[in-house]
Nucleic acid binder design. Sequence first.
DNA 1: CAGAATCCTTCACGATACTG
DNA 2: CAGTATCGTGAAGGATTCTG
Lengths: 126, 126
Amino acid sequence: MPETTHPRSRLSSEGLEITAPHRELLDQVLDKWSLQVLEELCERPSRFSDLRRAIPAVTGKSLTATLRRLERNGVVEREVVSSRPVAVEYRITVLGKTLREPIEALLRWSTEHMPAVEAARDRFEE
Amino acid sequence: MPETTHPRSRLSSEGLEITAPHRELLDQVLDKWSLQVLEELCERPSRFSDLRRAIPAVTGKSLTATLRRLERNGVVEREVVSSRPVAVEYRITVLGKTLREPIEALLRWSTEHMPAVEAARDRFEE
DNA sequence: CAGAATCCTTCACGATACTG
DNA sequence: CAGTATCGTGAAGGATTCTG
């Protein structure tokens, strides 16, 4: 059986590699509040205060930062709807929608395996 | 048309919810170095110094912390192979292997949509 | 209402040196 | 070899206050 000299990883052979740009992108898109924001915006376009109500634990500052990050990376759209008083609507983009599947895969994993993880944690504290 | 009083989100209706424990778990398992460590250990069991060589940018301290975190959550196993000089082998666990699919989904997304993201970033700096 | 500005604490992470 | 100990820095994130 002719073996390749360098047994390249399955990922590399698929053209997938964990380079710095990819790590950075995933960091920006999977950070502390992004999942909840994306989830919320997948359900419906929302205004700033809607999001604050939907995610009570987030502060204004962090929500702003999260939305800017998501907007910058093209997964969220911002539109000023009216002024006096200002209303701003945030919407998920087409690109953003493509993120939903992989994120849900993550959530499914976390939900499904949480018991095993908790058992491991108990074992770890010996 | 009889509408449900509360239009629950698709995720919630599937029993998926982004609660604090889930966020915490995902944080621990998707943090800065975890992806590369998991990827490496999926290919082959490795010793500490193997991992350092495979991931040149990581410092000893961070690698230790990463491995401890992963071990605590049950996705990585640690075994002292010999002493004098000490050799320690790290292996992916069965639980850890189940993480591979969702992680690869993420990497595929990132690889596939990186051009769109970069275009969005360019647009954003106006 | 949707943020920007300011202050402050925490903590992740790197660099370095040391040890069983 | 596989860490631990210590120090230092920057960045993340919260609380609060102010504004067009």
